[in-house]
Computed example of a mutant assay.
Amino acid sequence: MKILLAVDGSDYTTRMLSYLARHKEWANAGHAFTVFHVVLPVPHRAAAFAGPEIVHGYYEDDARIVLEPVRALLAGSSIEARFEHRIGHPAEEIAAFAQKGQFDLVIMGSRGHGALTNLVLGSVATKVLAACTVPVLLVR
């Protein structure tokens, strides 16, 4: 099964990865994992002021800061994965990447806001659920 692990470097991501590490059946079932992180875009005016080298460096640094601990945790759990990152809005990018890559499952952490909070504030997880045709497993 092709599984997309959507990560953002938060405690919720750590919980999701810990869940995978504790349940060895995920690692031993021959799944193909891809870890995916979305870096929020720098506003256009700020990017124009900072210049392309600084903006590109920011994107690469953000991805490295989020993905390196994930790489270490998965390696410690004997889970092999590919690592990808994109620049954009997280929910849209996760849903599009999952569908385009023909993944069988998306796994991501979730804060566990109540329905009213999600209605008012929204959340990446809620937006992914709404936009994605691939099944999504939320780990709280």
Results as ranks from 00 to 15, higher is better:
residue 39 V to H: 03
residue 77 S to A: 14
residue 52 P to R: 12
residue 108 M to A: 00
residue 82 R to P: 04
residue 99 Q to M: 15
residue 70 V to G: 01
residue 35 V to M: 11
residue 115 A to Q: 14
residue 109 G to V: 03
residue 4 L to N: 01
residue 46 A to M: 13
residue 72 A to V: 07
residue 107 I to P: 00
residue 96 A to N: 04
residue 30 G to V: 03
residue 39 V to Y: 03
residue 12 Y to E: 14
residue 96 A to C: 12
residue 25 E to A: 15
residue 24 K to P: 02
residue 110 S to R: 05
residue 113 H to I: 09
residue 84 E to Q: 13
residue 64 R to M: 09
residue 113 H to V: 13
residue 94 I to A: 08
residue 110 S to V: 01
residue 109 G to H: 04
residue 4 L to M: 06
residue 66 V to R: 05
residue 83 F to W: 04
residue 1 M to L: 11
residue 68 E to S: 06
residue 15 R to Q: 09
residue 68 E to W: 03
residue 91 A to W: 03
residue 53 E to R: 11
residue 43 P to T: 02
residue 41 P to L: 02
residue 74 L to E: 01
residue 104 D to V: 01
residue 28 N to Y: 08
residue 83 F to H: 02
residue 2 K to T: 03
residue 32 A to F: 10
residue 45 R to D: 15
residue 5 L to C: 00
residue 99 Q to H: 09
residue 24 K to D: 07
residue 26 W to V: 00
residue 96 A to S: 12
residue 98 A to I: 08
residue 100 K to Y: 11
residue 15 R to S: 03
residue 57 G to I: 11
residue 14 T to Y: 13
residue 12 Y to A: 15
residue 106 V to D: 08
residue 8 D to F: 04
residue 111 R to N: 10
residue 25 E to V: 09
residue 63 A to C: 08
residue 41 P to E: 02
residue 13 T to G: 12
residue 78 S to C: 14
residue 71 R to M: 01
residue 51 G to P: 08
residue 5 L to W: 06
residue 34 T to I: 04
residue 87 I to M: 04
residue 30 G to T: 01
residue 68 E to H: 01
residue 108 M to D: 05
residue 68 E to L: 07
residue 29 A to E: 13
residue 40 L to G: 11
residue 29 A to P: 14
residue 61 D to P: 07
residue 28 N to S: 15
residue 32 A to G: 15
residue 40 L to T: 12
residue 43 P to H: 02
residue 29 A to T: 13
residue 25 E to L: 10
residue 63 A to E: 09
residue 41 P to T: 02
residue 66 V to L: 13
residue 2 K to D: 08
residue 3 I to D: 05
